[in-house]
Amino acid sequence: MSKTDTDSRSDTQTESQPLVDHTVEGETSEEIRDEWTNYDFDGEAKLSVSELNVYYGDDHALKDIDMEIPEQSVTALIGPSGCGKSTYLRCLNRMNDRIKAARIEGNVEFEGKNIYDADANLVELRKRIGMVFQSPNPFPKSIRDNISYGPRKHGDIDTGLLARVLGRDDGEREERLVERSLKQAALWDEVNDRLGDNALGLSGGQQQRLCIARCLATDPEVILMDEPASALDPIATSKIEDLIEELSEEYTVVVVTHNMQQAQRISDQTAVFLTGGELVEYDDTEKIFSDPESQRVEDYITGKFG
């Protein structure tokens, strides 16, 4: 998927997938002040984004985003649908490379280097910045194979006839890894007696936790979650939310949600995107929900629009 082609067929792409919608009512034109998005926090920034712009053809989907994401915490991205929050999330592990019409400019620094540099190694990048999708997407394989898929592809685990013959079978290591990942994702107790079963037989909530476990198995540092509970029922949702809070002790979690209560419950800091692909305000979650600086953000979180 070469990037040279990103501007081809742009019109049809944007029209068939309205990724950005400028027509939400209630939008008032209000200056965005830099200090609203300059979030001060203690500790290190895991990812720092500067002057990030995304275009779908002529559509300017994300405008001049500057944002520092602190490590080992939960950052929530909220905003009305079509505000570009999912697009933004997918910029952080370069999953937007898959969308041929998208053009991405700017910097996303991870470990002090821009991941959009020409010499970036996508394999290593995505291994260390994992992602969980909106609807659960387990592979049509056994639960065990789902977990060990990533490590196998990276050559960290090697099983099978050849490995056994050559005496470097990692079967035991695989079992340990599967158990650890499933336990971290709070799924072990439910599936430990049927690791060989097809993952598609699990319930929706279990499938999503399996996807989280699958992501943890590659030993990531950052986990990106794109509305991970939106396709689930309330009980499964609360399990995922508990899990996210636990994960933030060890990992940097960035989660997109359209559910403001959820953002309030699980996140340490919240970034509000509003229509037009702008980051309007970014601060401690408490501050955002109790005393936002921007009038538009206040309108949005009090339900006046969006």
Partner: peptide
């Protein structure tokens, strides 16, 4: 087999 030195997101230049 990944070890610490290979865990760079950017490739070595040579």
């Amino acid at each position: 087999m990944s070890n610490a030195s290979e865990r760079g997101v950017h490739r070595d230049h040579s």
